[in-house]
Structure formats: structure tokens, C-alpha cells
Design a protein around this nucleic acid. Structure first.
Length: 133
RNA sequence: AAAGCAGGUCGUUCUAUCGCUUCUCAUGAAAAUGAGGGGAGGAAAGUCCGGACAACACAGAGCGCCACACUUCCUAACGGGAAGGCUUUAGUUAAGAAAUUGACUGAAGACAGCAAGUGCCACAGAAAAUGAACCGCCCCGAUUCGUUCGGGGUAAGGGUGAAAAUGUGAGGUAAGAGCUCACGGUAAUGUCGGGUGACCGGUGUUACGGGUAAACCUUGUGGGUUGAAAGGCCAUGUAAACGGGCUGUUGGGAAACCAGCAGACAGGCGGCUCGCCUGGUACCGCGGGUAGGCCGAUAGAGGUGGGCAGUGAUGUUCAUCCCAGAUAAAUGAUAGAACUUUAAACUUCGGUUUAUUCCGGGUUUAUCGACAGAAUCCGGCUUACAGACCUGCUUUUAUU
RNA sequence: CGGGGUGUAGCGUAGUCCGGUAUCGCGCCUGCUUUGGGAGCAGGAGGUCGUCAGUUCGAAUCUGGCCACCCCGA
């Protein structure tokens, strides 16, 4: 099984331009400062139940080094913690596109960021089950 | 040894676990899995210059516009670099009555032309450039005669200003003045010698005309425009592009037809003019762009180490190496060591002192590790940067 | 990745081309007026002209380097 290992290949990322603009225009959002998430339900893409993207606005972080660092941290936290949630989505046979947007203005602590990402994933599942009804 | 200045090099390392990306090989129908190799910088940054590359006529003319500006050299090219020249300037010193000139050690220079034309130079001042008369000085005349007024001469002195009409000394004069002379300064020009050249040295003649060209401008040189979102290809499905077809005319032909040329005006075309190229409508055939994928796109004005040429930038030659290629965008996360910075405590360590006084070493604990992330690729420039090391010069201290 | 623009008093602006005095409105302060406030009238304060250099006698203005902000092109 792919999901038993902590892998994060390109197929489980949102990378098409149209998908991303569609997320911004039609997606629903979950807010957990300093991270905001935009998501959309989609048909499952062969065993990649959750597909994500990460964004850090240039307006708040002028230096590319800082932006890259935050994006790497978010991806790392997602890689290590997403399994229980994607397993539940697999049980429901539902696919989800998800985009994390960092809205804070200062570089975050790793532990704080981790708790917020997990919170968003938990809330996503609840909202997703509502959407099923 | 310490401090300062200039130049150069480096700019954390290792281990474990879990990941990302790319290449090669193996297995596999494929998805994928396994093994092995590679994976940010000196500035990758700012986007300030110059090229390569691509399309448009593989790019044309003139004007306009823009950039550059001592010389020679380097280079693919440059607004970059090297060597040199000149000017300005700081300090020391020598000559001279002085102006000024020379020598040594540094520093700076967007360094063609204001002696081609035009413009501008506030306030102050008489006057800011067609050569100037406020005070003062001198001469003449008048007079109310120890005064005042008028006419004229005068740029030596005063005062103003950022800047006042070539500086110093002497002669000369009613008083003065390059009016004359001597020595200087600057500029133009002739000539001799040196240098590839900028320029330098000698010598003759003439002139003395303030500053400003990062004011308009003049002279010389260079620049076609647009940028990888350039440009090319693929699959899906289709245009105003392309071909046939239109009109006029010329040639051949009896004709059908064949071949050539042209078409008002419009468009390509960008600031203008010329020039070049393309085009009637309908219809038929053939066939776009966008979103997606691939190429462009990673072996190069390449790196490393020597030899040779050159004062140097650099060139040349030999050996050797292959060293990122992502695309909502990889190069990371966690833990533990080491190294490094700073501080504190301890120390039966070494030297030193009146003194656990100071210096050095060792151990432990805490702490610091900068600036910053490739996006077509190179050469520069500019800016940011904790700290470490090397070389040269200067100063101070110690020793011999 | 490429291109363009702006920065002047607490706020919004003029002046920049063609160098010499920094302007206007709102706001602020003081006084008058009013029983008091508002409005009105009179007077006043407040400026590293984003920043660092250069050219010039003199720079908001000209030239160059940085900084910040905004906009455009798929």
C-alpha cells in the first residue's frame, strides 16, 4: 500500500492551472489562523484521495527564502500526518482537492503550524460528511 | 605580536531515520518497484549594461530618438577590465622678492567642445560680460571759495559676491592702466626631437576671450525592432493565413487555353518619409491560437591543475573532469555529534604578581553560525553579508 | 520573466520639463464672536521634499546608486 509509507509523490499534488483557478473561484474555505485552506470535492484519482497545493503570498514575505521555507514545512507536516484522514476518504470513496494558504505575516513555529494543519484536516472531514448529505 | 588599509580565497561538516527531483540499469503490458549516480550561490539578488539564441525582409536608406566620449590594449561584446597620459587636490620639501615652478608620498576625476551659436548666472553689488565709474584718486571750469556743483580721465585701492576682466615686480604718468619691460600663467598656431598613441621636452609668433554642456546644443562613434510569455512540434476540433478561383492588360494562339504584369485603397509597420512584402467577395480544398504535453533547455566565450607569451587585463597549449534542470515550481524535516563565536563557573596545569593579580591552556554549562534560493544561457557592474584564512603595505610595542 | 509609474506638513495635492521664494485645501493651536458649542472672522505653528552620493556658487528640481509602494503584460 502506498499510504502506509510517508510518501508524497507528484500525483497527489494539485498542479494544473485550471484546477487551481477553479479552487480559488468555486472552492469552500476553512480558516485556522495563520493557515487558511480552500477545498473542493472531486471524483477519486486512482488512490490519491487527497490532493493538495501550498501557497504563501509574496505580499507578506518578500524574500523567496522565507516563502520556500514555510511551504516546505507545510508539505512536511502534511506528509507525516495525512494518513488517517485520507484513509477515511478512501472508505467513503471521495476525492478532495485541498490548498493551504499561509495568511500570517511572520514565520511560524513548527509545532504551532503542525497543530493547525491537523485541525484543518479534522474539520475538512466533518464538512465533507455534511456535503455528502 | 597588535591595529588599520588594499587585494584575494572560503563561507559549516558528519551520522541515523523519513521524504522530494532527475539520470542510468534491472524487473514489469502498464502503474510501479529495486539498485546505483547527481541535485543552489558568491552574490543564484537588483535587472543597470553587453552578448549568444529566436522571429519579423537571416534587417534596407534618410531624418528623428537613445547611449557613449583622454590614449593604447584586452574581449564574442560592453557603459566592464588592464597599463599609461593629463588635470585637480592633501602633506612634506627645494628654488625665488613674489607670482609661481620642481621633487617625493598619497587621493580623486561622467577627462571631446563654452576660443561655433543660443540660453541662464537669484540676493548683494556701480558693473555679472555689447568690456563696467558707487566711494576714492587726478585734471579742467564755475562757485555762496577750509565748501559745493558741472565736464572729463582713471580699473591702483575700498566695498559686494560663489565668481569682478592674466599674476608678481619695476618703469612710466596729472592720476592710472599690458601703456612698456622682466619673470610667470593660460590658450591658439608654426617648427625640431622623443613616444604606437594620449602626450612630453626645446624653440618662434600671436592673443588674454568669467562660469555653466549631469543647460539647449556641436563634433565623433555605436545602436533595426521585439524578447524564452521569443520560436518550433504533437493530439482534439476549426479561422480573416496558404492554394485554386476574380477584374484589367500584354504576349502566343483561329478559338479553347497557357504564360507574364498590374489593381483604387487597405494592411504588415512600431515616431515620420521612402523602400520592401501581401491582399477582390462568395465558394472549394488545405489548414490556427488559447488550456495540456514535448522541444527550445543545459557540454559551455565550461571547470580544475600545470607549461609558455605578455608590465598587466588576457591569450595560447597540454592533461584531466562532466558538475542542477524544477515548472503552483525539487534540493527538505527530525534527532544526535563535531567545529566555530560569545559568556559564566571550575581547575593539584604553565608563566607572572604585593595580591587567585593578569595572561594562556584544559573541563563543564548555556549561546551564536551571516546575506540569501537557480527559472533560456553566458560576460560584467551594483547592492547585501556572521565569521575564518592567506598575501602586501603602514604605524606601534617587544626581542636579537 | 519583462515593462511602466509614484514618493513633498497629520491627510490629499501644486511646484520638477526650463535649478535660486516650498504652494493650496482639510485638519491642529491661539484670540475674537456666542450663555456654551458649531459656523464665521483674524493670526500662528508644523517640512531630513523617501534615502545616499555627485554636478553646480547654489538641488524638491539635473545625473547615478539604493529603499518602499502601486500598476500593466499570460
Amino acid at each position: 500500500m502506498i499510504s502506509r509509507k510517508n510518501q508524497f509523490p507528484k500525483a497527489s499534488r494539485v498542479h494544473l492551472r485550471n484546477d487551481i483557478s477553479f479552487l480559488f473561484t468555486k472552492g469552500k474555505s476553512i480558516n485556522a489562523f495563520p493557515v487558511k485552506a480552500v477545498y473542493k470535492i472531486e471524483p477519486p484519482q486512482n488512490e490519491h484521495w487527497l490532493r493538495i497545493a501550498v501557497s504563501v503570498p509574496k505580499r507578506n514575505f518578500k524574500k523567496a527564502v522565507d516563502r520556500n521555507r514555510i511551504k516546505r514545512q507545510i508539505r512536511e507536516i502534511y506528509r507525516l500526518n495525512h494518513h488517517p484522514y485520507s484513509a477515511q476518504l478512501a472508505a467513503l470513496q471521495k476525492g478532495v482537492q485541498l490548498m493551504f494558504i499561509f495568511t500570517g505575516k511572520e514565520s511560524p513555529e513548527y509545532a504551532v503550524l503542525q497543530s493547525k494543519i491537523i485541525l484543518i484536516l479534522q474539520r475538512l472531514l466533518v464538512a465533507d460528511e455534511v456535503a455528502v448529505n
